[in-house]
Design a protein around this nucleic acid. Structure first.
Length: 576
RNA sequence: GCGCCCGUAGCUCAGUUGGAUAGAGCGGCAGGCUUCGAACCUGAAGGUCGGGGGUUCAAGUCCCUCCGGGCGCGCCA
């Protein structure tokens, strides 16, 4: 849309330069602004304002000069004017919009190809398998998943990966915790370790271990038992995580094991490489990475003085591994509590000889969970938390996903369980889905009336019949879809799509209430059917990109909520 | 103490990278189903964009400062 106008305006500027009036040495970046108010047209340019100082002329004079030199051979403009302090306001002609709609309907311009087949990796979730997923993880996972879907949609080859910290201290702690609970089952009461995981799921794992292996670990060497139980617990929990995410419609191309990374010797190799680059030094018996030299504010340890690798060492090796796999972009979706980690990881990427710009870290803010307005404390150690699974069971995948996507990743999310449950039948997601179902229903009605709406061909439809302002607005909105996709991808902000869908659905609902689609006027009916079909297509596409269902009919409402029409309850007429 | 994020209508949040008269949803108020699905729609009400400075033709948006909330600042994981 902007491209069409950019050409025209560029021509006008060139012409103005030749014919005098303005001194132009170079073409400025042509900035277009979608006007805030409809009266200002479809698109506005502020060139004149930007230029005023350099040209030593008033913005309005510049704007008027440009306008006089503007040619529009193809008639894409309906109106162009100078307004306000010197804006150039443009309105596209209906024909222009009909043509855009046609392009979409004929599938010619539906496919964006920003990626050109480049490989992108989205790493997300990557929760340590020491406990079940909670709500915050869910938000990270959904945002990561939708980003992946968006990248695929615009022409990238996407890989979704889950990095598993399946080795190290915390896995040991998991084993230890299970070991204690296991011994408790046999009456061996020791004081539960401070660093242990106190959640009930640990007890469940202990019970399962008992069922499966009986008294085996009582007689076994303590360290051996812990090590075994650690592995057993980690695998079980990772399996559960995988199931939970699966229920959310999230599937990974691969799970990348830290333990295997270490066993393959990649961490050593990476360390050796960094050493050869002079990026490491010894201090106090530990090995340090010169992060400060690469923009971080502290140097970071990679090997502790006791000889253990730090997790950071693995992370560097992991990212080197990613980069060697040829990804053109690495997207990491993290909880915002890891934000302090970004600069050190970017520093390491630079030290490895890559451009740190390859890595994009999307930070997802915390989810503030409440139940009826009362905060719910969460933490693996305390063992008190609401799992993602519970939320899924209570509000359903679609509602939960939409909740997670309705806010900028940067913003804290208030998630009230009571509210989410109570409103599950009037959740915003239903608003969008309802629009989709409503349109399906109209087409069904059309079939019953013997109108062939399903095989409508654009060529046979008189789009000029769509002359109402609401209809023009809907067309514009539908055309805007690709732009929204592009921005969502470019800015790594999937919430934009969610908002867009709400707006489009709203426009449709209003239109529906005001104007009938099906009427005796056949050509009008056909034009309107075409219009709402394009709305439906965009909504369906959008919902799928968000990982949501696009139902053709909504489930019937639950009895207590359903409107029984004229029947009134005996004395409870006031009950609402 | 230092760093990052947030502060916009009663509540929850958008605001297209600096544009013109700041927008939705929910809640409250007043209305609309014999017609394509009322999980919808219409109308009115609701604002010192946390406060104060600054940058410029133009600031919710950029800079400084203060206030308030969250999260980070290990040879933790």
């Amino acid at each position: 849309m902007k491209d069409y106008l950019r050409d025209l305006l560029a021509q006008a500027i060139k012409k103005t330069a030749k014919g005098g009036g303005l001194e132009i040495t170079e073409l400025p970046p042509l900035l277009f602004v979608p006007p805030r108010h409809k009266e200002f047209g479809d698109l506005a340019s502020n060139v004149a304002l930007v230029w005023a100082k350099k040209q030593k002329k008033s913005p309005r004079v510049i704007a008027e000069t440009l306008l006089r030199n503007l040619e529009d051979p193809e008639g894409i403009l309906e109106h162009a004017e100078v307004a306000g302090p010197g804006f150039l306001n443009f309105s596209f002609s209906p024909k222009f919009w009909y043509d855009r709609l046609k392009e979409i309907e004929m599938g010619r311009k539906s496919g964006l190809d920003l990626g050109r087949g480049d490989k992108v990796q989205v790493e997300f979730a990557s929760v340590n398998p020491t406990g079940p997923l909670h709500v915050g993880h869910g938000r990270v996972a959904v945002i990561g998943d939708v980003l992946a879907r968006l990248f695929e949609e615009v022409g990238y080859r996407v890989e979704r990966e889950y990095y598993v910290n399946d080795t190290g201290k915390q896995m040991e702690n998991l084993g230890l915790s299970i070991y204690y609970r296991y011994r408790e089952l046999f009456g061996e009461k020791d004081e539960f370790p401070q660093e242990g995981y106190a959640g009930d799921y640990v007890k469940e794992l202990a019970v399962k271990a008992k069922d499966r292996w009986g008294r085996k670990f009582l007689s076994e060497e303590r360290e051996t038992a812990i090590q075994f139980l650690s592995r057993y617990g980690g695998e079980a929990l990772l399996g559960a995580i995988r199931d939970d995410l699966g229920e959310f419609g999230i599937v990974f191309n691969g799970y990348f094991s830290e333990e295997e990374l270490r066993n393959r010797g990649e961490v050593e190799q990476t360390i050796n490489f960094l050493r050869s680059q002079g990026a490491l030094y010894d201090h106090d018996g530990a090995l340090w990475f010169r992060a400060v030299s690469y923009g971080d504010d502290k140097d970071r340890a990679v090997i502790k003085s006791n000889g253990d690798l730090t997790y950071f060492a693995s992370d560097i090796a992991y990212h080197q591994n990613k980069l060697q796999r040829g990804f053109k972009k690495l997207i990491n979706v993290w909880g915002a509590d890891h934000h302090g980690y970004v600069s050190r990881l970017k520093a390491s990427i630079q030290a490895l000889g890559y451009d740190s710009q390859l890595l994009h870290v999307v930070l997802v803010q915390m989810v503030h969970l409440t139940r009826g307005g009362v905060p719910v404390r969460m933490g693996k150690r305390t063992g008190e938390f609401v799992t993602l699974r519970e939320v899924l069971e209570e509000v359903g995948s679609d509602a939960a996903r939409f909740f997670f996507l309705m806010r900028k990743a940067d913003s804290h999310l208030d998630f009230d369980l009571e509210l989410a449950k109570k409103e599950s039948s009037e959740n915003p997601v239903f608003y969008v889905q309802y629009a989709h179902a409503r349109i399906a229903s109209i087409f069904e009605q059309a079939r019953r009336s013997g109108i062939d709406g399903d095989n409508l061909q654009v060529a046979e439809v008189q789009l000029e019949r769509l002359a109402l302002s609401e209809e023009m607005e809907i067309i514009k909105k539908v055309v805007q879809f690709t732009e929204v996709l592009e921005e969502s991808v470019k800015e790594l902000e999937p919430h934009r799509l969610a908002f867009y869908l709400l707006e489009l659905a709203g426009q449709f609902h209003r239109y529906y209430n005001k104007s009938r689609v099906l009427s005796d006027d056949m050509s009008l009916t056909r034009a309107r059917l075409l219009l709402i079909r394009s709305v439906q297509k965009v909504i369906r596409k959008g919902l799928h990109l968000l990982g949501l269902q696009a139902p053709s009919r909504m489930a019937t409402r639950s009895p207590q909520e359903s409107d029984q029409g004229g029947t009134s309850s005996p004395e409870g007429a006031s009950a609402s």
